[in-house]
Protein backbone atom coordinates (compact mmCIF):
# COMPACT_ATOMS: atom_id res chain seq x y z
CA UNK A 1 0.00 0.00 0.00
CA UNK A 2 2.65 2.42 1.06
CA UNK A 3 4.98 1.99 -1.88
CA UNK A 4 1.99 2.14 -4.13
CA UNK A 5 0.97 5.48 -2.67
CA UNK A 6 4.48 6.81 -3.06
CA UNK A 7 4.57 5.63 -6.66
CA UNK A 8 1.20 7.23 -7.34
CA UNK A 9 2.34 10.49 -5.75
CA UNK A 10 5.58 10.51 -7.70
CA UNK A 11 3.82 9.84 -10.98
CA UNK A 12 1.15 12.50 -10.45
CA UNK A 13 3.70 15.03 -9.28
CA UNK A 14 6.08 14.23 -12.10
CA UNK A 15 3.35 14.86 -14.64
CA UNK A 16 2.80 18.37 -13.29
CA UNK A 17 6.57 18.69 -13.27
CA UNK A 18 6.72 17.95 -16.99
CA UNK A 19 4.34 20.80 -17.62
CA UNK A 20 6.56 23.11 -15.57
CA UNK A 21 9.47 21.86 -17.63
CA UNK A 22 7.79 22.61 -20.94
CA UNK A 23 7.03 26.19 -19.96
CA UNK A 24 10.53 26.50 -18.51
CA UNK A 25 11.86 25.36 -21.86
CA UNK A 26 10.13 28.34 -23.44
CA UNK A 27 12.09 30.60 -21.07
CA UNK A 28 15.33 28.94 -22.10
CA UNK A 29 14.77 29.54 -25.79
CA UNK A 30 14.65 33.30 -25.45
CA UNK A 31 17.32 33.42 -22.78
CA UNK A 32 19.76 31.59 -25.03
CA UNK A 33 19.70 34.22 -27.75
CA UNK A 34 18.92 37.41 -25.90
CA UNK A 35 19.58 36.82 -22.20
CA UNK A 36 16.03 37.97 -21.59
CA UNK A 37 12.87 36.11 -20.66
CA UNK A 38 9.24 36.98 -20.99
CA UNK A 39 7.71 37.53 -17.57
CA UNK A 40 4.31 37.43 -19.21
CA UNK A 41 4.84 33.91 -20.55
CA UNK A 42 1.96 32.64 -18.42
CA UNK A 43 -0.41 34.98 -20.22
CA UNK A 44 0.89 33.63 -23.53
CA UNK A 45 -0.02 30.12 -22.41
CA UNK A 46 -3.45 31.30 -21.33
CA UNK A 47 -4.25 33.44 -24.37
CA UNK A 48 -3.22 30.69 -26.77
CA UNK A 49 -5.40 28.21 -24.92
CA UNK A 50 -8.37 30.59 -25.11
CA UNK A 51 -7.75 31.18 -28.80
CA UNK A 52 -7.57 27.45 -29.50
CA UNK A 53 -10.76 26.91 -27.53
CA UNK A 54 -12.46 29.54 -29.66
CA UNK A 55 -11.30 27.77 -32.81
CA UNK A 56 -12.78 24.52 -31.51
CA UNK A 57 -16.02 26.28 -30.67
CA UNK A 58 -16.19 27.56 -34.23
CA UNK A 59 -16.08 23.96 -35.31
CA UNK A 60 -12.47 23.69 -36.39
CA UNK A 61 -11.09 20.15 -36.41
CA UNK A 62 -8.56 19.23 -33.77
CA UNK A 63 -5.48 19.36 -36.00
CA UNK A 64 -6.43 22.75 -37.39
CA UNK A 65 -6.92 24.03 -33.86
CA UNK A 66 -3.40 22.97 -32.93
CA UNK A 67 -1.90 24.70 -35.95
CA UNK A 68 -3.99 27.80 -35.36
CA UNK A 69 -3.06 27.85 -31.68
CA UNK A 70 0.64 27.50 -32.46
CA UNK A 71 0.54 30.29 -35.02
CA UNK A 72 -1.29 32.51 -32.56
CA UNK A 73 1.31 31.74 -29.90
CA UNK A 74 4.13 32.53 -32.30
CA UNK A 75 2.47 35.82 -33.24
CA UNK A 76 2.14 36.77 -29.58
CA UNK A 77 5.76 35.85 -29.00
CA UNK A 78 6.81 38.11 -31.85
CA UNK A 79 4.65 40.89 -30.48
CA UNK A 80 6.34 40.61 -27.09
CA UNK A 81 9.73 40.72 -28.75
CA UNK A 82 8.85 43.80 -30.77
CA UNK A 83 7.00 45.75 -28.11
CA UNK A 84 8.81 44.77 -24.93
CA UNK A 85 12.21 43.34 -25.61
CA UNK A 86 13.90 44.85 -28.63
CA UNK A 87 14.17 48.42 -27.44
CA UNK A 88 15.32 47.42 -23.98
CA UNK A 89 18.03 45.17 -25.38
CA UNK A 90 19.26 47.96 -27.63
CA UNK A 91 19.49 50.24 -24.65
CA UNK A 92 21.11 47.48 -22.63
CA UNK A 93 18.58 48.12 -19.89
CA UNK A 94 16.50 45.67 -17.94
CA UNK A 95 13.34 47.36 -19.11
CA UNK A 96 12.25 44.08 -20.70
CA UNK A 97 11.38 42.74 -17.27
CA UNK A 98 8.82 45.47 -16.69
CA UNK A 99 7.58 45.73 -20.23
CA UNK A 100 6.94 42.02 -20.46
CA UNK A 101 5.11 42.13 -17.13
CA UNK A 102 3.04 45.04 -18.44
CA UNK A 103 2.15 43.27 -21.66
CA UNK A 104 1.15 40.27 -19.56
CA UNK A 105 -1.16 42.50 -17.55
CA UNK A 106 -2.70 43.80 -20.76
CA UNK A 107 -3.18 40.27 -22.06
CA UNK A 108 -4.77 39.20 -18.80
CA UNK A 109 -7.24 42.05 -18.83
CA UNK A 110 -8.06 41.49 -22.49
CA UNK A 111 -8.73 37.80 -21.84
CA UNK A 112 -10.98 38.63 -18.89
CA UNK A 113 -13.07 40.93 -21.02
CA UNK A 114 -13.08 39.01 -24.30
CA UNK A 115 -13.50 35.46 -23.01
CA UNK A 116 -14.90 36.07 -19.56
CA UNK A 117 -13.57 35.51 -16.08
CA UNK A 118 -14.78 31.99 -15.72
CA UNK A 119 -12.81 28.80 -16.09
CA UNK A 120 -14.05 26.69 -18.97
CA UNK A 121 -13.51 23.09 -19.96
CA UNK A 122 -11.37 22.33 -22.98
CA UNK A 123 -12.76 19.46 -25.02
CA UNK A 124 -10.38 16.71 -26.00
CA UNK A 125 -10.78 13.47 -27.89
CA UNK A 126 -8.50 11.70 -25.42
CA UNK A 127 -10.16 9.87 -22.56
CA UNK A 128 -9.79 10.98 -18.96
CA UNK A 129 -10.77 7.59 -17.54
CA UNK A 130 -8.12 6.07 -15.35
CA UNK A 131 -5.99 3.14 -16.48
CA UNK A 132 -4.20 0.86 -14.10
CA UNK A 133 -0.51 0.50 -14.67
CA UNK A 134 1.27 -1.49 -11.95
CA UNK A 135 -1.35 -0.42 -9.46
CA UNK A 136 -1.00 3.26 -10.37
CA UNK A 137 -3.93 5.21 -11.70
CA UNK A 138 -3.09 7.25 -14.73
CA UNK A 139 -5.30 8.68 -17.42
CA UNK A 140 -4.59 8.59 -21.17
CA UNK A 141 -4.93 12.36 -21.03
CA UNK A 142 -2.00 12.58 -18.66
CA UNK A 143 0.03 10.25 -20.82
CA UNK A 144 -0.71 12.44 -23.81
CA UNK A 145 0.63 15.45 -21.91
CA UNK A 146 3.86 13.62 -21.16
CA UNK A 147 4.26 12.52 -24.76
CA UNK A 148 3.41 16.00 -25.99
CA UNK A 149 6.01 17.62 -23.76
CA UNK A 150 8.78 15.37 -25.01
CA UNK A 151 7.64 15.66 -28.60
CA UNK A 152 7.66 19.47 -28.54
CA UNK A 153 11.06 19.69 -26.91
CA UNK A 154 12.46 17.04 -29.22
CA UNK A 155 11.17 18.78 -32.30
CA UNK A 156 12.61 22.12 -31.27
CA UNK A 157 15.98 20.55 -30.54
CA UNK A 158 15.87 18.79 -33.90
CA UNK A 159 15.10 22.09 -35.55
CA UNK A 160 18.02 23.75 -33.81
CA UNK A 161 20.45 21.05 -34.87
CA UNK A 162 19.31 20.09 -38.33
CA UNK A 163 18.20 23.27 -40.06
CA UNK A 164 20.18 26.26 -41.18
CA UNK A 165 17.93 28.60 -39.25
CA UNK A 166 18.34 26.44 -36.18
CA UNK A 167 22.11 26.52 -36.50
CA UNK A 168 22.00 30.30 -36.70
CA UNK A 169 20.05 30.16 -33.47
CA UNK A 170 22.72 28.04 -31.82
CA UNK A 171 25.44 30.33 -33.12
CA UNK A 172 23.86 33.44 -31.64
CA UNK A 173 23.29 31.58 -28.40
CA UNK A 174 26.93 30.54 -28.21
CA UNK A 175 28.48 33.90 -29.06
CA UNK A 176 26.36 36.72 -30.26
CA UNK A 177 29.17 38.97 -31.45
CA UNK A 178 30.97 36.24 -33.33
CA UNK A 179 27.71 35.17 -34.97
CA UNK A 180 27.05 38.71 -36.11
CA UNK A 181 30.53 38.88 -37.62
CA UNK A 182 29.61 35.78 -39.60
CA UNK A 183 26.69 37.63 -41.07
CA UNK A 184 23.94 36.18 -38.90
CA UNK A 185 21.43 38.81 -37.84
CA UNK A 186 21.09 38.65 -34.08
CA UNK A 187 17.88 40.68 -34.19
CA UNK A 188 16.26 38.18 -36.55
CA UNK A 189 17.46 35.27 -34.46
CA UNK A 190 16.05 36.82 -31.32
CA UNK A 191 12.75 37.28 -33.14
CA UNK A 192 12.91 33.64 -34.11
CA UNK A 193 13.54 32.60 -30.54
CA UNK A 194 10.59 34.62 -29.27
CA UNK A 195 8.39 33.16 -31.98
CA UNK A 196 9.48 29.65 -31.05
CA UNK A 197 9.04 30.39 -27.37
CA UNK A 198 5.53 31.62 -28.09
CA UNK A 199 4.79 28.39 -29.94
CA UNK A 200 6.10 26.31 -27.06
CA UNK A 201 3.90 28.30 -24.69
CA UNK A 202 0.90 27.77 -26.96
CA UNK A 203 1.57 24.05 -27.13
CA UNK A 204 1.85 23.95 -23.35
CA UNK A 205 -1.50 25.72 -23.16
CA UNK A 206 -3.17 23.28 -25.56
CA UNK A 207 -1.67 20.26 -23.80
CA UNK A 208 -2.63 21.16 -20.27
CA UNK A 209 -5.93 22.92 -20.94
CA UNK A 210 -8.01 19.71 -20.81
CA UNK A 211 -6.60 19.06 -17.33
CA UNK A 212 -6.38 22.54 -15.87
CA UNK A 213 -9.37 24.06 -17.69
CA UNK A 214 -9.11 27.39 -19.48
CA UNK A 215 -9.44 30.65 -17.59
CA UNK A 216 -7.57 33.93 -17.18
CA UNK A 217 -5.74 32.64 -14.12
CA UNK A 218 -4.99 29.17 -15.51
CA UNK A 219 -1.26 29.73 -15.77
CA UNK A 220 -0.53 32.14 -12.94
CA UNK A 221 0.39 29.39 -10.49
CA UNK A 222 2.19 27.31 -13.12
CA UNK A 223 4.36 30.11 -14.33
CA UNK A 224 6.14 30.75 -11.05
CA UNK A 225 6.97 27.06 -10.76
CA UNK A 226 8.16 26.99 -14.34
CA UNK A 227 10.38 29.98 -13.65
CA UNK A 228 11.81 28.19 -10.64
CA UNK A 229 12.46 25.06 -12.68
CA UNK A 230 14.16 27.06 -15.42
CA UNK A 231 16.47 28.90 -13.06
CA UNK A 232 17.31 25.98 -10.80
CA UNK A 233 18.09 23.76 -13.77
CA UNK A 234 20.05 26.58 -15.34
CA UNK A 235 18.79 28.93 -18.00
CA UNK A 236 21.09 27.25 -20.51
CA UNK A 237 20.58 23.69 -19.38
CA UNK A 238 18.54 22.26 -22.25
CA UNK A 239 16.89 19.06 -21.12
CA UNK A 240 17.99 19.71 -17.54
CA UNK A 241 14.59 21.31 -17.00
CA UNK A 242 12.92 17.94 -17.46
CA UNK A 243 14.82 16.37 -14.57
CA UNK A 244 14.36 19.35 -12.29
CA UNK A 245 10.70 19.66 -13.27
CA UNK A 246 9.98 16.03 -12.49
CA UNK A 247 11.92 16.29 -9.26
CA UNK A 248 10.11 19.43 -8.10
CA UNK A 249 6.70 18.06 -9.06
CA UNK A 250 7.26 14.78 -7.25
CA UNK A 251 8.68 16.56 -4.22
CA UNK A 252 5.61 18.78 -3.97
CA UNK A 253 3.30 15.80 -4.11
CA UNK A 254 5.21 13.85 -1.51
CA UNK A 255 5.45 16.88 0.78
CA UNK A 256 1.76 17.51 0.73
CA UNK A 257 1.12 13.86 1.48
CA UNK A 258 3.64 13.41 4.27
CA UNK A 259 4.05 16.88 5.77
CA UNK A 260 0.69 18.48 5.13
CA UNK A 261 -0.92 19.99 2.10
CA UNK A 262 -0.46 23.57 3.32
CA UNK A 263 3.32 23.11 3.31
CA UNK A 264 3.31 21.71 -0.22
CA UNK A 265 5.65 24.31 -1.63
CA UNK A 266 7.98 24.89 1.31
CA UNK A 267 10.63 22.15 0.82
CA UNK A 268 10.83 22.95 -2.86
CA UNK A 269 11.43 26.61 -2.08
CA UNK A 270 14.08 25.86 0.51
CA UNK A 271 15.86 23.43 -1.80
CA UNK A 272 15.65 26.02 -4.50
CA UNK A 273 17.39 28.65 -2.43
CA UNK A 274 20.02 26.12 -1.39
CA UNK A 275 20.56 24.98 -4.97
CA UNK A 276 21.08 28.57 -6.05
CA UNK A 277 23.45 29.19 -3.18
CA UNK A 278 25.62 26.23 -4.20
CA UNK A 279 25.30 26.60 -7.96
CA UNK A 280 24.28 30.13 -8.92
CA UNK A 281 24.05 29.25 -12.61
CA UNK A 282 21.75 26.35 -11.99
CA UNK A 283 22.26 22.67 -11.32
CA UNK A 284 22.86 21.92 -14.98
CA UNK A 285 24.00 25.39 -15.96
CA UNK A 286 27.46 26.20 -17.16
CA UNK A 287 29.57 27.80 -14.47
CA UNK A 288 31.52 30.82 -15.57
CA UNK A 289 34.90 31.89 -14.21
CA UNK A 290 35.06 35.55 -13.27
CA UNK A 291 37.32 37.31 -15.72
CA UNK A 292 38.48 40.88 -15.75
Amino acid sequence: MNTQIIAQMVVSGALMGLVYALIAYGFQLTYATSKSINFGQGELVMLSAFFSLTLLNFGAPYWLMIIGGLLFGAALGLLVERAAVRLALQQKSEGWILLSIILGLLGFSAAENIWGRDDRPFPTPISADALHVFGINITPLEISVAIGVFAVMGLVELFKRKTLLGKAFEAVAADRDAAELMGISATRTIMLSYGLSGMVAAMAGILIAPITTVGPTMASALILKAFAVAVVAGLDSGFGVVLIGIFLGALESLTSFYVGSGWREAPGLILLILALAVRPNGVFGKAAIVKV
Binding site: I5, Q8, M9, S12, G13, L222, S253, G262, R264
Partner: peptide
Protein backbone atom coordinates in the same frame (compact mmCIF):
# COMPACT_ATOMS: atom_id res chain seq x y z
CA UNK B 1 -8.14 17.66 7.00
CA UNK B 2 -6.47 18.82 3.82
CA UNK B 3 -5.77 22.15 2.24
CA UNK B 4 -5.24 23.26 -1.33
CA UNK B 5 -4.14 26.56 -2.80
CA UNK B 6 -5.97 28.68 -5.33
CA UNK B 7 -4.75 27.54 -8.73
CA UNK B 8 -3.77 24.01 -7.65
CA UNK B 9 -4.57 21.48 -10.32
CA UNK B 10 -3.23 18.28 -8.86
CA UNK B 11 -5.14 17.08 -5.80
CA UNK B 12 -3.76 13.56 -5.73
CA UNK B 13 -1.94 13.95 -2.45
CA UNK B 14 -4.92 15.32 -0.57
CA UNK B 15 -7.23 12.70 -1.99
CA UNK B 16 -4.93 9.82 -1.28
CA UNK B 17 -4.74 10.91 2.34
CA UNK B 18 -8.51 10.83 2.49
CA UNK B 19 -8.57 7.49 0.74
CA UNK B 20 -5.92 6.04 3.01
Amino acid sequence: TEKFNIGDKDMTAQLLRAKA
